[in-house]
């Protein structure tokens, strides 16, 4: 089951007139995975999610969601997905409960009242169930919107910027909820601008700008984009160690940084590391710390997006 693909696209494209919004997207998302869709404004994230959710038709290519083509059988696909839209709205003059019951009643085999009450409780809105949605804050509406996509307990979720507009605590609660949904076996495709959120939640991140620029685990993305350098902090002068390292064949690059720090690029950052340490010790260096020079995901993301620009 682990490798079972539940969302896949092949050459999925969308143009609006002359403007290409999504260009030949090919991806596969496995069951139980959280994939983050990361891209600048206007990258085509919302357009992609809308095509997957069967709301707009692709101009070319195709998608398969839970074994069905959303363009030809949108209603069947809707039974098994939950789609949190970019700007979710409600009937503001009616209560939260009434709003949810309305949406729930469109699904076969769902008891609308029960489902509405269950999701209101899950999202911590039970005490406001009877209040008009018009009286809700933005964050409460966003939580209510998430409650709405969970009414039929879908196995596949498309979340378009789920934490947009939430305060830090609410955003954290929501991220915890997303993780708990994955634990229950949901497959989640979420779009976001928030890099640390993408990194925290996603098993894999798709960097996207009209075209798919890269898709991989957050760690692999960083490593792919940047060479892995080691930072070695020494108790005293770096010069003797630096001179010794420059003689070594497996050291591709070494330089001093500030007082007492060596930055070293190795041929293989893992297997050459013990050799590096013993060579420094041999040269009389007293090592305080050896660690990988982690570049933030943000740098990897920006460099991918800028490569695409130029």
């Amino acid at each position: 089951m682990i490798d079972h693909v539940v969302i896949s696209t092949e050459g999925l494209s969308k143009r609006f007139g002359d403007r290409v919004a999504v260009d030949a997207l090919t991806v596969a998302v496995r069951a139980g995975e959280i994939v983050g869709l990361l891209g600048p404004n206007g990258a085509g994230k919302t357009t992609t999610l809308r095509m997957l959710a069967g709301i707009i038709a692709p101009s070319a290519g195709r998608a398969v969601v839970d074994g069905r083509n959303p363009a030809s059988e949108p209603e069947r696909v809707h039974e098994s997905i939950g789609f949190l839209t970019e700007s979710p709205g409600f009937y503001e003059r009616l209560s939260a409960e009434r709003n949810l019951a309305y949406f729930a009643a469109f699904y076969e085999g769902v008891d609308a009242q029960v489902a509405a009450a269950r999701e209101l409780a899950r999202l911590g809105l039970a005490d406001r169930a009877r209040d008009k949605v018009g009286t809700f804050s933005k964050g409460m509406k966003q939580r209510l919107a998430l409650a709405r996509v969970l009414l039929h307990e879908p196995r596949i979720l498309f979340l378009d910027e789920p934490t947009a507009g939430l305060d830090p605590e609410a955003a954290r609660n929501l991220r915890e909820l997303i993780v708990s949904l994955r634990e229950r076996g949901c497959t989640i495709l979420l779009s976001t601008h928030n890099l640390s959120e993408a990194e925290e939640l996603s098993d894999r991140i798709a960097v996207f700008r009209t075209r798919l620029l890269a898709i991989d685990t957050p760690k692999a993305l960083r490593e792919r984009q940047f060479e892995r350098r080691l930072r070695v902090r020494l108790a005293d002068g770096v010069e003797p160690s630096l001179a010794a390292l420059r003689e070594e064949p497996y050291v591709r690059e070494a330089r001093a940084e500030g007082d007492g720090v060596l930055v070293v690029l190795l041929a293989d950052p893992d297997s050459d590391r013990p050799r590096l340490v013993s060579r420094i010790v041999q040269a009389g260096g007293r090592i305080l710390e050896v660690r990988e020079d982690e570049r933030p995901l943000e740098d990897a993301y920006l460099s991918l997006v800028r490569e695409e620009e130029s």
Partner: peptide
């Protein structure tokens, strides 16, 4: 509310 509505069956 149209888009959320159209995402239901």
């Amino acid at each position: 509310t149209l888009e959320p509505l159209l995402a239901t069956p």
